[in-house]
Write a protein that binds this DNA or RNA. Structure first.
Length: 239
DNA sequence: GCGACAG
DNA sequence: ATCTTGTCGC
């Protein structure tokens, strides 16, 4: 994945929304929803936080069996696009690709704080990123972007999320007090494996460990930057 | 036109 | 996502 390749897929600069939609469509054509991993030894979670005009992307790699942390990486960049529903991949894509690129050993599967195929154009961040990077991904979010589902009320209960007559993910009740979460296949992960992998990573909290820990790490880095430690922290502008 | 809408 | 105080519950 050279810089030019990443720029083409993730940089929203000087591009119209029509062009961005065409890129999403192009990525969608590459999506494969069959399991594309050989074994599950590691799983990573990736999430972003913001500070002013900067975006902080954090990634945490865990041992799949024990869920212990193996590695953490992050990058800080300038934000290039405001938040616009259904175009999140172009807001956070550059930072995510850069942080992911820092990992010498890629995780067997990557869980992202976003949508997978549960997207109006089947191009949620997890699906778009997975297809472009050709890596197994799963999207986990806290709100439904599109689709409908029965509301699970008992911890452990889950239902199919359906959009335009097709199942695009799952809605799961993961903890007593919190609202259900949504899990959707991104790329190279089947609908069944998506449910099993996310279920395996649950540890009593609302979010699965990979994403929960990445979220905490991103928030931690944000506080460090705010405190002025930004210069001794990793600076990684552009891709 | 109006409301909804991942992070 | 971020801005924010107290508050209820395991």
């Amino acid at each position: 994945m050279d810089k030019e390749y990443l720029r083409r897929w993730f940089d929203p600069q000087s591009r119209s929304f029509k062009e961005l939609r065409e890129l999403q469509h192009e990525a969608t054509l590459m999506i494969d929803l069959r399991d594309g991993f050989r074994e599950l030894r590691t799983v990573a979670g990736m999430d972003c936080s913001y500070l002013g005009d900067r975006i902080i992307c954090a990634i945490v790699v865990l041992d799949y069996t024990t869920l212990d942390i193996i590695k953490r990486e992050h990058v800080v960049q300038k934000v290039r696009l405001p938040y616009i529903p259904t175009y999140l991949n172009f807001r956070e894509g550059c930072a995510m690709a850069s942080a992911f690129g820092k990992l010498e050993k890629k995780p067997d599967v990557l869980i992202m704080d976003s949508c997978g195929i549960n997207h109006p154009r089947r191009s949620g961040m997890a699906s778009y990123f997975g297809a472009v990077m050709d890596h197994p991904t799963i999207g986990v979010s806290k709100k439904i972007l599109c689709g409908e589902a029965l509301v699970p009320t008992e911890v452990g209960e889950y239902h199919e999320l359906v959009y335009e007559g097709e199942q695009v993910g799952w809605v799961l009740k993961t903890s007593k007090r919190s609202n259900p979460i949504i899990a959707s296949p991104g790329h190279k992960v089947s609908m069944q494996s998506c449910l099993e992998i996310v279920g395996h990573c649950l540890k009593g909290h609302k979010l699965p460990e990979p994403t929960r820990l990445a979220h905490l790490y991103a928030a931690e880095l944000r506080e460090e930057l705010k405190a002025g430690k930004g210069h001794q922290t990793t600076f990684n502008e552009n891709y």
